[in-house]
Design a protein around this nucleic acid. Structure first.
Lengths: 190, 190
DNA sequence: CGCCCCTTTGATATTAATCAAGAACTGTGG
DNA sequence: CCACAGTTCTTGATTAATATCAAAGGGGCG
């Protein structure tokens, strides 16, 4: 991905959608298909985006000719899996406000890590219905929980711009620990 | 893993546990630590088990000296991730009986694939509290939903032996499609 | 200007959690 | 072989979280 926002998702028999991850500049969301013959989910864009395609053969040869770089690609897919696990923790064991807070923390830290956040805010193009499908909540409940977080002054979210107002409190609410993102250095925030 | 049952899990601040996966004979549950410096979750046994350890250096050298085999290891971690995604679908978008049914389907198919199922039944050493922690449900609710599945004659579960009574109906209940397991051939069941 | 999507709000229904307690197992030591 | 201690399973009653249904405002865009 050169630029934009992607998500991975699956549509159920019932028509319900489950979103698994969001992807931003520099991510390689389709890496897993390198060694899996059949795609078991879909990729879609949230906003107009720019992508580059790498043929599987080239990527495989590349990974073999430069094993160290191949390992980095492998590592990238392992981090994806670590993020899935963290999302499972949210859906399995946290209530709605905490899940939303966690998503805000995660996206903000990722955006900051690639230099796409200024100060305490970053772009956040997810609609409430998209958030619901990612967190296992109904749109209405996302709205109410979001109101709650706003009401308590933890975040501001307006015109698809997220602003972190109380970083410590937000992390506490979310139970957020950036370890699972396996960043080399976690960006500091005042 | 040579023999036994493992699970991967994380304990939250609150003391709640989230289980991410179960592992049986032949699985390599710790493969992800090959390229991730810090372990972001735990591994534990469900029953007495036998394991073999492979030093990371050996595994890394092995993967480089035999790239085809290295790719198979990589692929294994990608299938793990696919299973995580499927569990996310369950926790995000399916009700309790469907989640339990799905877990039964998954475990049965995996057991069958490695020759550990006879006819329509296999070992199933999960307590109801373990199932709850894996599916994001309380123990009591697992019990009631399990009763429901039993009452409808879909499964039998006794003395930690699972028996599939109505395979078609169970899959329907679960919304189960084995594609995500990426098995070369899905074992047939009458 | 008008339409469509998104957000917000209220009312109600459903699912699942929690609390509590008794019954059925399992393994242990005598 | 039995008593008992600790789990695990089951059940009932109650509460809390979340979904669903319905409808009214906003905002951006052609």
């Amino acid at each position: 991905m050169l630029n934009g926002w992607f998500c991975r998702y699956k549509i159920l028999e019932t028509g319900a959608r489950q979103i698994f991850s969001f992807h931003i500049n520099g991510d390689i969301p389709d890496l897993q298909s390198l060694h899996l013959k059949t795609m078991d989910h879909n990729l879609g864009t949230l906003v107009q985006s720019t992508v580059a395609f790498v043929p599987h053969d080239s990527a495989r040869n590349f990974a073999r000719d430069f094993p160290h770089l191949g390992d980095i690609l492998w590592r990238d897919t392992l981090i994806d899996a670590a993020i899935f696990r963290q999302w499972m923790v949210g859906m399995g064991r946290r209530d709605a406000p905490a899940r939303i807070a966690h998503l805000c923390c995660e996206i903000f830290v990722k955006m900051r890590a690639v230099g796409l956040a200024k100060e305490n805010s970053c772009e956040f193009p997810l609609t409430q219905s998209v958030m619901g499908d990612a967190l296992g909540l109904s749109t209405v409940h996302v709205n109410r929980s979001l109101m709650d977080l706003r009401g308590r002054g933890l975040i501001a979210l307006d015109k698809h711009m997220l602003t972190i107002l109380k970083w410590e409190a937000l992390q506490d609410e979310a139970g957020f620990d950036p370890l699972y993102l396996h960043l080399d250095r976690v960006p500091e925030l005042a």
